[in-house]
Amino acid sequence: MADTRPLSISRRLLLAGGLLALPARALAARGQIVTILGDSITAGLGLPAEAALPAQLQLALARLGVASVVRGAGVSGDTSGAGAARVDFSVQPGTAVAVVALGGNDLLQGLDPKTTRANLERILVRLKQRHIGVVLAGLKAPPELGRGYAHDFDTVFPSLARAHGVTLYPDLLAGVGRNRALNQADAIHPNAQGVKIIAGRLAPVVARVLAKQV
């Protein structure tokens, strides 16, 4: 999930919508603000901005009748630790709900699940201190990493959601992961159709959390 374009996709998405220069108040007038804090999967590596998850989630929410502005805060290559280090900068003022979608690069690097948990916990605590609603998007570790490791990693997300009273979306790649037809050639990053599926499944969960923030 490594890449050398940290904020380019998110920036292009905002520019495309004419949103980059708008203050939070003006953005809020267009709908509640959702920020996706993530890595290359949420940044849309290998896809045009309009096909990436932020744009597709905004469209999926609109189909549910939910006006929103979805900000992309995905940085390719980011681990949970990198996300924790930039959470205050990346989840900007005016955000009603943050979708926290980190951990894929922790898996690729074989990081201790305890480290992933501690990093994600820092993010959740900070977002709650700022009164931002949270959707914690989990991931499932591939069994090739070993049954014990996979179990420990998989339990990080539900246990954190329970401990901090946030909404859990159990598996960001549900219905898409390991499906060749829905992924790019690297077999890691979803293609445009895969992203649409993710956005469609994620949108109702985000909508419910948004409704609580009004």
Rank of each mutant, 00 (worst) to 15 (best):
G133P: 02
A163S: 13
S159C: 01
A203N: 02
S159Y: 01
V134P: 11
G165M: 12
H131A: 14
R178M: 09
A163T: 11
N179K: 09
D154R: 05
A150F: 05
V166R: 03
E144D: 10
R201K: 15
G177E: 02
H151F: 11
L145F: 14
T167S: 06
R162W: 00
Q193F: 08
F157H: 08
P158M: 09
A137I: 01
L145P: 00
I197D: 00
H151E: 14
I132R: 05
D152K: 11
R201M: 11
I188M: 14
G146S: 05
L172G: 05
A137S: 14
P170N: 08
K128G: 13
H164F: 15
G133K: 09
P170F: 03
L173E: 04
A141M: 01
A174D: 13
V166Y: 07
G133H: 08
L173G: 07
D171T: 02
P143E: 11
V135H: 06
G194F: 09
V135L: 13
V195H: 00
A203F: 05
L145R: 14
E144F: 12
D186V: 00
G138E: 04
V166C: 04
G133Y: 09
L136A: 12
L202Q: 03
P143W: 06
H164I: 12
A163C: 07
A150Y: 04
G200Y: 00
A174V: 13
P143I: 04
V195Y: 05
A187S: 14
P143M: 13
Q193I: 04
L127R: 04
G194A: 07
Y149R: 05
L145I: 00
L160C: 06
Q129V: 03
G138Q: 02
L124E: 08
K140R: 13
P204A: 07
V134M: 10
Y169H: 11
A199I: 05
I188W: 04
I123H: 04
G146K: 09
L145S: 06
P158A: 06
G148H: 03
H164V: 09
R126G: 06
G165Q: 14
A203D: 03
V135Y: 12
F157T: 01
I132P: 09
G146T: 02
K128A: 15
P190S: 06
I198H: 01
A187L: 15
N179C: 00
H131K: 15
R147H: 12
H131R: 15
F153C: 01
G165D: 15
L168W: 00
R147E: 15
I197F: 01
A174K: 10
L139K: 03
N191A: 04
H189M: 03
V135K: 13
A192W: 04
G138K: 01
L173H: 04
R180T: 12
L173F: 11
P142S: 02
L136I: 08
R201E: 05
G146L: 07
F157A: 06
G200V: 02
V135N: 13
A137P: 05
G138M: 01
L172Q: 00
V176P: 04
L168V: 00
G200T: 09
R122N: 15
V206D: 02
A174W: 08
A150V: 06
A163P: 07
P170I: 05
V166A: 06
F157P: 02
P143C: 00
P204Q: 12
G148L: 08
S159W: 01
